[in-house]
Write a protein that binds this DNA or RNA. Structure first.
Length: 336
DNA sequence: GAACGGCTACCGACAGGCCT
DNA sequence: AGGCCTGTCGGTAGCCGTTC
């Protein structure tokens, strides 16, 4: 690592909102030290990788002779892209501290980073690299056996804009993350959420609470409403979809009842209702995946129809009850 | 089908206080 | 000390129900 120049460019692209490219950091690793040489937030109309080539950051990349670009796996809404210096392709022994989990805790929020790095670094012993901090220090650029604290500049790198994934289920780190969460039950007084906790909130975690109001969700997630809203914006969620989900749920329920009622009388109608329910369920799943999506106009029409039917049915019942009560009162007057 | 109103829940801004 | 989080509040969006 000594006297070598390695340029690492991390690009995170929000793939849900295709038009948005989130943030770009350029780190230079020189003589065993990592420093941020450029930081820029790039927003692109199309969001395509080709578009990005024209940005100042990518011009810088060109200037630094970066020839190799590796696209990592997609991390939920984010696409991770790495690029490296043409003449100094990273070796197993020269992983920048910035990309070591133990040196940069925020990397924990990228579950597929391990796989990405394996591809990029062609790693054999990935465990040693990403899970064991002391091991990586030994294997890394720390040949002088310096104490860990001497590499502090790496830890202070600002990666506030690293991506947050939506599928932690595959991540071996996931269990650790869950265990690391603050104990909600033990917190009697509302305590400030740690930045580590906030960074670890994932889209998949949020999805679980889409069917409850945002206030309740923030309580369960053990973070403030403001934090939760900020996370929503990061994930491209303009509004908490609780009401959309609730509305679709009630429609699904309504359609299901309709199907049940018609099962014996009208098989065709029952089948049509089942098909409708299936479509609504798939729309609900779509909204859970892409919470910024609006309810389809077709569904809105259906909702309006159901409101009307419900209203007519209530009016009918009301009418019947007034008729029966008036007829019974008439009867009593006649009898008297 | 279109439009309107009531109501609930959400948003954004801001102030104050806690935490690092 | 500065940054970050919570709580509050007024405005508003959107769901639901109703009417024409």
């Amino acid at each position: 690592m000594k006297n070598t120049l390695l340029t690492t460019l991390l690009v995170f692209k929000n793939t849900i909102r295709e038009e948005l490219i989130r943030s770009v950091h350029v780190y230079q690793i020189k003589d065993g030290k990592v420093r941020e040489v450029e930081r820029e937030f790039v927003f692109s109309e199309s969001g395509s990788y080709g578009e990005m080539r024209s940005t100042p950051i990518l011009r810088l990349q060109k200037k630094l002779c970066v020839a190799e670009v590796s696209e990592g796996y997609q991390n939920g809404v984010w696409l991770c892209i790495f690029s490296f210096h043409r003449n100094h392709k990273p070796q197993f022994s020269s992983i920048p501290n910035l990309l070591l989990l133990s040196r940069n805790l925020k990397l924990r929020t990228i579950p597929t980073l391990l796989r990405d790095l394996r591809v990029i670094y062609k790693l054999e012993k990935d465990k040693d690299v990403l899970s064991d901090s002391t091991g990586e220090e030994r294997q890394g650029n720390n040949k002088d056996s310096q104490p860990l604290r001497k590499v502090v500049p790496v830890l202070t790198q600002d990666l506030n804009f690293l991506p947050y994934e939506d599928d932690m289920s595959e991540s071996p780190d996931n269990k650790l993350d869950v265990q690391a969460l603050p104990d909600a039950d033990s917190a009697e007084k509302k305590k400030r959420a740690s930045s580590d906790r906030v960074a670890k909130i994932t889209l998949s975690e949020l999805v679980k609470y889409f069917d409850i109001p945002i206030v309740e969700a923030s309580r369960r997630l053990n973070v403030g409403l403001t934090v939760l809203k900020r996370k929503c914006r990061e994930f491209g969620i303009p509004r908490w979809p609780h009401r959309k989900i609730k509305s679709l749920d009630s429609l699904i329920h309504e359609i299901q009842e309709e199907a049940n009622n018609q099962e014996s009388d009208d098989k065709a109608a029952a089948l049509a209702a089942i098909e409708k329910r299936r479509m609504l369920e798939s729309e609900k799943e779509n909204i859970e995946r892409k919470p910024f999506m609006d309810i389809q106009s077709e569904t809105k029409k259906l909702r309006q129809d159901i409101f009307k039917r419900r209203h007519r049915a209530r009016a009918q019942v009301k009418n019947n009850s007034t008729v029966s009560s008036s007829s019974s009162s008439n009867k009593t007057t006649i009898e008297t």
